[in-house]
């Protein structure tokens, strides 16, 4: 299994480190040709305007859209914003989005940096992938100037929400989005969850049924 991490800007090294801890072949993606041969892609945290600008400048927007049609993609924080079909509070003049998740995100929903926080987040969806040695119970989630999902379409599964109802983790088919940064937490379960999505999609494509990624149970 080979997974790419978009390395235009942001915390891509942390994702690569986590993937390698899971024994996955992980590579940096900066140009369209770097997507060749990948089974999945992570779009990391960073500044979504910076990543969107660089993706547009180096001809990555269409290749990334085609990629997420066919193969699993996970966006964390800025990555979640880029994967949303619609975003609120964009920079003046808007910003290029890749889309794919039928959601509306609100950028910097929680406020500025002084409002950034840590919280223990109940994530029952992770129980299916937990391995020996993983922490039990809630996922210790780190939110940095984070977005939140304010509307979800009918095909979107909500994986986690805060007590006030703000949606912070979603999945739609083989696309995963988290408003927080599992790459900064000392917990591999979200990375396991994504690699399970990728191996599910690989199995499906071997069986000739693309685009119907599922989680092994």
């Amino acid at each position: 299994m080979k997974i790419g991490v978009l390395a235009l800007q942001g915390a891509f090294r942390e994702h690569i480190k986590k993937l390698r801890q899971l024994g996955v072949d992980a590579v940096e993606v900066r140009l369209p040709q770097d997507l060749d041969g990948l089974d999945g892609l992570i779009i990391p945290g960073g500044e979504s305007t910076t990543m969107g600008h660089l993706a547009a400048s180096f001809g990555l927007v269409e290749p990334l859209r085609r990629f997420r049609e066919e193969r699993p993609v996970w966006g964390t924080c800025a990555g979640l914003i880029l994967l949303a079909n619609r975003a609120r509070r964009q920079k003046e003049g808007g910003q290029p989005l890749l889309g794919g998740l039928d959601i509306v995100v609100d950028r910097n929903y929680f406020g500025r940096q002084v409002d950034s926080f840590e919280i223990d987040l109940p994530t029952p969806a992770l129980d299916a992938v937990a391995a020996p040695g993983d922490p039990d119970g809630p996922f210790h989630a780190i939110f940095i100037r984070a977005p939140a999902v304010t509307e979800v379409g009918p095909d979107v599964e909500v994986l986690a929400a805060l007590p006030d109802g703000a949606i912070v983790a979603v999945r739609q088919g083989h696309i995963l989005g988290t408003a927080f940064h599992p790459e900064l937490s000392d917990d591999l379960r979200f990375h396991r969850y994504f690699t399970a999505l990728v191996s599910g999609a690989l199995q499906d494509s071997h069986n000739g049924q693309r685009r119907t990624a599922r989680l092994p149970t």
Binding site: A7, L8, Q9, G10, A11, F12, R13, E14, G45, G46, E47, C77, A78, Q113, S116, I142, I144, R145, H181, L184
Partner: peptide
């Protein structure tokens, strides 16, 4: 964590 997000 914010510093991490500024990297690159």
């Amino acid at each position: 964590g914010l510093a991490d997000m500024l990297k690159g």
